[in-house]
């Protein structure tokens, strides 16, 4: 079996990049490449790219706005277009919407409070590369930690996301005011997933749960057997 080649991108202000790298290494058996935001090129033949959580550029202008215009993002947009799987978690999700790889935007939480706790999610799409290890409708637990996770898109976009099965996860409780309880969405081709909850913080019992591990296992299995 060939090695699983993944990359974790670090922006100034990323703070979940080590957790993401640790999760990818533990699940795939291969340590990911660590890529700096200023790099114009990605390592060759990547199987998987992860954009971690954090507060890139101090959330200046809008969350993820500056990071989404950094040199490495041009390479990531190009790789995503070729079908390379891209996972963006929390700030990584904000970077994906700001870059145009995913539709919509993430607004300030409706209660204007930073939400940092474990929450219940339901799996809305269990057919994607990232979610094939879950059952449709399965309820899972993952931590969230964000101030701007209130997903917004216009009704036409939301209807389209729903119609095409591109909502990956929904909140099973009130968290941040997201429209239609959206916690994670896929791009049209299904190779880009953005989500506010942190699967990399739920990969082993020592972290309080391992429901997030299934996401990485799904991707590794899907890519190695592909």
């Amino acid at each position: 079996m060939s090695a699983f080649r993944s990359a974790v991108i670090t922006f100034p202000g990323s703070n979940c990049d080590r957790d993401m790298a640790d999760a990818l290494e533990k699940v795939s058996g291969n340590a990911p490449f660590r890529v700096w935001h200023g790099d114009a090129e990605l390592p060759e033949r990547l199987d998987f790219i992860a954009l971690p959580g954090g507060f890139s550029y101090g959330d200046y202008l809008r969350c993820g706005a500056i990071a989404s215009r950094s040199p490495v993002m041009r390479a990531i947009v190009e790789a995503a277009g070729r079908g390379v799987p891209v996972l963006g978690v929390c700030n990584g999700f904000q970077v994906l919407t700001e870059s145009g790889l995913l539709p919509g935007a993430l607004l300030r939480n409706s209660a204007i409070r930073f939400v940092c706790r474990e929450i219940a999610l339901s799996v809305a799409n269990s057919q994607s590369l990232f979610t094939s290890g879950y059952e449709a409708g399965q309820q899972i637990m993952m931590p969230v930690a964000h101030h701007d996770g209130n997903y917004y898109a216009d009704d036409a976009t939301l209807d389209r996301l729903e119609g095409e099965g591109r909502i990956a996860f929904r909140y099973a409780e009130q968290v941040n005011g997201s429209v239609r309880d959206i916690a994670g969405i896929l791009n049209e081709a299904g190779n880009v997933l953005g989500m506010m909850p942190h699967p990399e913080r739920a990969i082993e019992p020592a972290q309080g749960g391992s429901d997030g591990r299934v996401l990485f296992e799904s991707a590794v299995k899907g890519l190695v057997s592909a």
Binding site: L61, R62, A65, R69, T97, E98, P103, G104, A105, L107, Y152, A153
Partner: peptide, 9 residues
């Protein structure tokens, strides 16, 4: 359009 405003919102 490219940076200062997010045209989605």
């Amino acid at each position: 359009r490219k940076l200062l405003a997010n045209m989605v919102i």
